[in-house]
Write a protein that binds this DNA or RNA. Sequence first.
RNA 1: GCGAAAGUGGCGGAAUUGGCAGACGCGCUAGAUUUAGGAUCUAGUGGGUAAUCCCCGUGUGGGUUCGAGUCCCACCUUUCGCACCA
Length: 831
Amino acid sequence: MQDYYPFDKVEEKWLRRWENSNLDKTGTDPDKENYYVLEMFPYPSGNLHMGHVRVYSIGDVVARYKRMEGYNVLHPMGWDAFGLPAENAAIKHGNIHPKEWTWKNIAHMKEQMKAMGLSYDWDREVTTASKDYYKWTQWFFAKMFARDLAYRKESTVNWCPSCETVLANEQVVNEGCERCGTEVEPRELEQWFLKITEYADRLLDDFKELDNWPEKVKTMQKNWIGRSEGTRINFPLKDLDEHLEVFTTRPDTLYGATYMVLAPEHPLVSELTEGSEKEEEVKEFIAKVKKQKEEERTSAESEKLGIFTGAYAVNPVNDKEIPIYIANYVLMSYGTGAIMAVPAHDQRDFDFARKYDIPVKAVIQPEDIEDKLKGSEMEEAYADDGYLINSDQYNGLSVKEAFAKMAEDFSEAGFAKVETNYRLRDWLISRQRYWGAPIPIVYCDDCGAVAVPEEDLPVELPHDVEFSPSGESPLKKVDDFVNTSCPQCGGPAQRETDTMDTFVDSSWYFLRYTDANNEQKAFAKDKADKWFPVDQYIGGIEHAILHLLYSRFFTKVVHDMGMAEAVEPFTNWLAQGMVLKDGAKMSKSKGNVVDPKDILEEYGADTARLFILFASPPEKDLEWSNKGVEGANRFLNRVWRYITDNIELIKNEEAEIKPAELDKDAKKLYRIMHSSIKKVSEDIGQRLNFNTAISAIMELTNEVYSYLNDREEAEINSALLRTAAENTLLLLAPFAPFLSEELWERIGYEESIHLASWPEYNQSALEKDEITIVIQINGKVREKINVDADISEEEVKEKVMAEEKVQSYLEGSELIKTIYVPSKLVNLVIK
RNA sequence: GCGAAAGUGGCGGAAUUGGCAGACGCGCUAGAUUUAGGAUCUAGUGGGUAAUCCCCGUGUGGGUUCGAGUCCCACCUUUCGCACCA
């Protein structure tokens, strides 16, 4: 009789029953340890895609496993619900409001998640676009404003002409908008910033708490923050009563500075050249650089171009005159926008000096070369360690010694100071779009910018707004919203009309989950500390800088506010790979999308989960395979079939297994059962390698089949069969929650399998009576013998030497050496 | 250009500590069952070979070792990150 797992009926049945159960609720047992597993919440676009299926399946396996292991588990879900797509959809479809669109999508995706069998505690659902949530996002902004961590400043910012809003530096990728790819334009605007730079050092230093983060991601963040320690040095100008300030990480090479360079945008440029014979030439050059910058923006090795200004600076250590150039390779946005150039020890300066025939003066001598470096003969810059030459009293010092000594001396002499520079810029959070949390600031003629007090929060986003993008916030046109009174003096005032970057919303949602329904606070400290930091965070690598850096910053601010103990939000982070089809990311334009809905309809949720976890380790990209899906389905049917076929035998069995009485095949099944438990436990619990965990369950199932195939029903050890079936279901429960639950009930349990304890393996059951010893001759496998497990080294060697094949190899050769690896192999070295 | 990761059958992948390469799955071959197909069950499946012997085999070339997918050196390819940050 053929029997198939009727997934549709089973899923319907258990979805209904689970709905009224407390299975997925956050654990509260004071005797258990707490565990917080979290997947990045989705943007509610309307439908789950395969990427969602993958990340949420991973998280669900961890959550279910940890529950069975005896932890209180917090496994929540929510919606990153503010953002442009809602507005764009509303604009595209005409008569639907972003709010309506968002809430409709949320309802649908929530149903899809439930259908997937994902075990979330929906009592803690968080939606960033709901008033209950964004009230606290605004509250955090106001608190930061009070702590001087939020400020308004006019500066050059990145403008996306397609999204019609400004963007943070982190949201500009290859000079394009992170969302739509459109090339960004610089604009001078007054905008709100969060002072993430104040946390730059802590964001770097606290990586020591994050041993388990992927090295790659830490490197990316380190690069992004870009800390460099150096010295700010003042060079007097020759004919002007002014100074030229430069930042350098190599104060030890000051004696080797043979020219200075200003960025074309540097304010001193006009002062130095105005009225001079060089003025016209310099202006032409700057115009050329500006034009070139746009045209050759993407070229990797753009040529270094420069021009002499005719002006000179004076080296403060030896009063030598140094010519000042303007060049395209110095940027106004970093350091002071000016450098001292040391061509002998910096490759860029070296290239430039050779091109414009500027002297090269070596001041660092490599230890391992006898001849003194000569600037005129060098072929490339020498940037490594060595000792100082041509540097007066500093000669002979190592680079490290000289760095410290010179920085100190120069500071005392008053023309330099030690300084650390960062690449990181403050986080621009103003957005000129509608669907976001209004920045809770009121402008009063008398009091200036005033934060909206807590009792007046939230500043509600008005509903009826003409929100087509216009380059200005749509809220500007809503008089009721704009006109208000000053919270401080009561006088007439206007509200800030920009909304916040959606990355602000998602920078603290993981804390809200710990106390999601608190109406008095963002979250209570005791609740936060009970769960936070997140033990295991799972999400896409695309957030390596953006969301993860912002969240780390927020967590540190929260800590400083005394609201939580943790200084880092995510103890472990798993970056899951993409889901590909035909070697490419699934996308509508490529027409290679597989809709999870279709897979669920044809094979059911358990098959979908099982396939996506089996096909590849989680951090690697996964190639979608319809055949692979069928394979996963086939395996579930194999489990279903052997248990239902033998249901009477299994159901009625109550006896315990007596390992000593098992026959040979039974013993093998018994052993594999225990080794599977061990393997699956380690693979889920420690390695997060679900593909090999599943293969271990398959091996167990295969072994059950081979046990059953070899004997008549009367010969089946039903206690063993029952235990094997139970363990198979327990191991499978995190992966295939529906099938395991149904069969668990059928074999006689009344309580859910998801409340059962994770099985334990028995070390003694793993040990074999008989082991296989590999015999190698000169490292090549030539024979294998089976011996008793407790055999001595001498006995093994005796047996090996007695082997016919070994004898034939030994004939006419000399045995030089015998290597014995206990329980594994014997290697005979012969000549 | 710099840095990191990866490269294993026809395919996805396994080998966690230097010790039987290819677990598990897909595909394929044969058999059983079936009117037939599908499904299922059984056996086989890295290449060469009649073969269970033997030879070859983890991107390429060297090295260390009794023994290397695993360690070291050089190179090739792919992916990712950084790319004038003074």
